[in-house]
Design a protein around this nucleic acid. Sequence first.
DNA 1: CGGAATCCTGCCTGATACTG
DNA 2: CAGTATCAGGCAGGATTCCG
Lengths: 152, 152
Amino acid sequence: MEEGTYKSPGHCEGTDRDYDALQWDTREDCEVRQILDRVADKWSLLVIALLDRHTLRFTELRRKIDGISQRMLTVTLRQLERDGLVERTVYPVVPPRVEYALTPLGATLHDTIQALVTWTEGHQNEIAAARAAYDAREAAEAQARPPEHTRV
Amino acid sequence: MEEGTYKSPGHCEGTDRDYDALQWDTREDCEVRQILDRVADKWSLLVIALLDRHTLRFTELRRKIDGISQRMLTVTLRQLERDGLVERTVYPVVPPRVEYALTPLGATLHDTIQALVTWTEGHQNEIAAARAAYDAREAAEAQARPPEHTRV
DNA sequence: CGGAATCCTGCCTGATACTG
DNA sequence: CAGTATCAGGCAGGATTCCG
């Protein structure tokens, strides 16, 4: 990331204006897709969710977000900071102390993200059931299905 | 992906019960994290957002979601179907016709996701401004910063 | 403690060919 | 059309090391 290098994964030069309903994907300033990719990021979402009002230190975040590598936490925090969603405060003390907190903008996003978390918590049982049903169906079909050209 | 192989990226055996505030990350049935990773997926989010009431065919989704590979669309749709969020209907006609639509459960998720999309659309300018400010600050610091051990 | 730098692996994309 | 299969190439991300 040199400086302001938007690599723009989405093309942006999408000239297909035959969209009738929704197609904010590529067009519509094109930035929406880019921001959405950031916001809809696995790690970003967790960081935003955790920074609900209390500030957290780097290691605290690392510990709370099980499975994240220190590199990805760094990268994620930098991105969120650049996007103006998270504020990074460095205290020039002997053991370095860096605290992260949501900016006012980040706080508004937190509400939305929290809704997503709440939804997930409230529907995990239904999803688990759907998965079980799907897997059972799959297994049954695999059973009944003749081994077309399964070989071996 | 053999059949029901939950590889469980999150450990689940997290025994650190020193969490005081939020730590739904690893514990709390542990499934929340897994589902959240699915829901907070770049492609899943776009698919759900696009399937707002109208059903869409495979190719239609592919065309609307610029940048997605056919493989990832297939994978994403399968996962969403397994999670009971998307329903896949196959019409046994000569040119195969497969339609995807949100299930009732998926529709409830759509509302939440739509809120995220709306937030993004409504704040893209602020984010763009924050990025510009951040980049300018970075550039200024890089300018003023002495080339410590830059070599060459 | 909070990173930055490096290496290295694995997944994703993109292209192509083949089914039903 | 709606996939599945395969291979090449790139890059995102994990693990490790070292520095302020």
